[in-house]
Amino acid sequence: MKKGVMRPGHVQIRVLDMDEAVKHYTDLLGMIETDRDDQGRVYLKAWTEVDKFSVVLVEADEPGCDFMGFKVVDEAALNQLEKDLVDYGVGVEQIPAEELKDCGRRVRFTVPSGHAFELYADKKYTGKWGVSSVNPEAWPRGLQGMKAVRFDHALFYGPELAAVYDIFVNVLGFYLAEQVLDPEGTRVAQFLTVSMKEHDVAFIHHEDKGKFHHASFFLDTWEAVLRSADLISMTDTSIDIGPTRHGLTHGQTIYFFDPSGNRNEVFCGGDYHYPDHKPITWKAEDLGKAIFYHDRVLNERFLTVLT
């Protein structure tokens, strides 16, 4: 957080059918619908999140991710980061306050992998859902499905990882927590953090620009991950792989798809990161174990099925 970027704040996901998508993200994932706007977008949050929304669904002709936003500590930091991006040669676009309801102005930029990111300082503080901020109970009643705790991170596929690294690490103050290096020493995956989490955003090399691999949601326990697997079967939801453990980050995980083919993850556990930690390296030749620690074999789908 050394440059004032605090945490992942939101992600806008394109869906083919809004009703199916809302049902998936609320009934199955357990997010809470908090608003809709005149563009037809639907705003959702997970129950422990203090701001009004973290996922925005928008109906579109093709699925994928429009942008991911990071919240910064204050307006002064936003101004400085905007200046730093411009000085570094990154083009920025001003998105006015209220373009997303109850969100302040956003500074949007596209990195060389083809993905759009945003920085913002203000969003309406609504507090955790269903619990008081004074003497709060442990959890709220009435949560649905997987009872997602928070939107945690996203993984993107695209080219030019080194240039993306430079922007996130040198301009925005992220740290490299984990990486995958090929035999020539080229970084083919990078897991970046601005917090104690093992990743706040990650990138894996792919020839095509702007590909969305997954949006990930945190759960408290392995039991909750297994219960999510039960729910995936109960609802006949399209599964990708799991429950299993990753080598990278060591998180315990399950992957599945929303009704438009966007991949979701729910996970628990995983390593932690402090700024004095050196990056963890996985060898590309051991990618099977790095990604799926138990099977130690990649499923082709994980590397190629994207939106």
């Binding site: 083919l16 699925p63 798809f257 929303d258 083919g261 099925v305 994207l306």
Partner: peptide, 11 residues
């Protein structure tokens, strides 16, 4: 080939 099963990935 089986991909996302949701009409999204083209697999």
């Amino acid at each position: 080939p089986v991909g996302c099963r949701g009409g999204g990935c083209g697999f």
